[in-house]
Structures are given as structure tokens and as C-alpha cells.
Write a protein that binds this DNA or RNA. Structure first.
Lengths: 90, 90
DNA sequence: CTTTCATTTAACCTTTTGGTTAAATATAGT
DNA sequence: ACTATATTTAACCAAAAGGTTAAATGAAAG
């Protein structure tokens, strides 16, 4: 919980790319992995960091584990940034 | 340049606290340093990372170096996040 | 021009991060 | 039960991050 875990998760470029991939829709881990020049194990760790931060959710379906984006936790980050900018929000 | 450097700079809690401090107005390095339980050298390094990311600007005034917040680069981060959330923006 | 104060830089150390390969786990198909 | 496929976990490693203390720099004051 908290903005710390969220921003930390966002601070790696591969993890941000994963989120961008998932913007288009849910994907199994293997599909995600294919998009990057690192091992499946490395991607699996990135996924678990994103999941810990609740930026993604996973559901097993047979052999595959599908990942999908969860943007709700980004709200907190937006608010923190807005706060810095001295913006009013309702 | 780029959202990467900005988010990386934001990913440390001390650096975020520094930005929050500066929200209230410009402060010399020493004043900033006083708020944290780490050495001045450590704070100096944090300041240089924030400066590299253009999240703060510094101006020397006599013996002191004043730091002030620059929120303009946060716009890009907001846009990136909004993009993930699939939001329309003008 | 030397001393003092504010700050940064250098050298160093420990922990964290992100990667690898190999082994483990889970499910499906034969 | 065995085999193949998808994914994670374990063990390990190199590089990056964040901290420390000590030395260097810059400006002001004696």
C-alpha cells in the first residue's frame, strides 16, 4: 500500500512497458515475456513486483496465467503529484 | 529528459519528502538537510539527482545554495499515467 | 590571506536491484 | 503414469543505489 510501492514499481522501464502492453488487454505471462530481450524468469520477477504493487492482477486459466492491468492504484500517485503542484482537487 | 529519469528520482522516499518540503518555498541545502536523519553528503547526492531530473533548480546566494521546486517536468509523468488509464487529454 | 561556514565531491562499504541458469510446480494431453 | 508446456522459485552474480566519513571547493568575514 502507499505511493512508495507504486512509484517504485513504476521506476523500471521494463515494468512500465509491461503495463503499456497490458493496456491493450489481458495477456498470459509467456506472451508478455516474448516482448522483451530478457529471460522468462526475469519477467516473472517483474510481474510479481507489479502484482505486489497491485498494478496488475493475475488469473490462472488452465496452463496459462493471464495478467491484466489495474489502474486504480495510480489514482494515489496522481493525487500525490497534484498535491506537489499545489493543485486543488475535490 | 524523459519520464524515466523523473520517475526514478521520485522513487526514493527522502527525495519525495524533499520535494514536499520545497512545496512551501525555496530553502538552502543546509535547511533541507536538517529535516533528515542522514548526513549532509547524502542529502547533497539526493539533491543532485533531483536537479538532474530537473525537479528542482538551484541558485547560489552568497554562502548558501537555495533549492526550489520545479513541477513542470511532472506534467510528462501525469500524461504517461493518464495514457495508461486510457484517458483522453487535449 | 587565513579562517570559518555551507555545500559538494571522493573513496569506500553494504544492501538492493535486475539479470542468469537450473530446479521446482502446476496443468494438460497422451 | 509419463511427457510436454507454462510459469515461478532458488541460488547465484554484477551493477546500481544509498549511506558514511574525510577531503575539496566557494564565498564571506576577520
Amino acid at each position: 500500500m502507499g505511493v512508495q510501492k507504486t512509484i517504485k514499481a513504476l521506476s523500471d522501464p521494463i515494468r512500465r512497458e509491461i503495463l503499456e502492453l497490458l493496456k491493450a488487454g489481458r495477456l498470459p505471462a509467456g506472451e508478455i515475456s516474448n516482448h522483451f530481450p530478457v529471460s522468462g524468469a526475469a519477467i516473472s520477477k517483474h510481474l510479481s513486483i507489479l502484482r505486489e504493487a497491485d498494478l496488475i492482477r493475475d488469473t490462472r486459466e488452465g496452463k496459462y496465467i493471464y495478467y491484466e492491468l489495474n489502474t486504480s492504484v495510480l489514482e494515489e500517485v496522481m493525487l500525490w503529484i497534484s498535491g506537489l503542484k499545489g493543485e486543488k482537487h475535490d
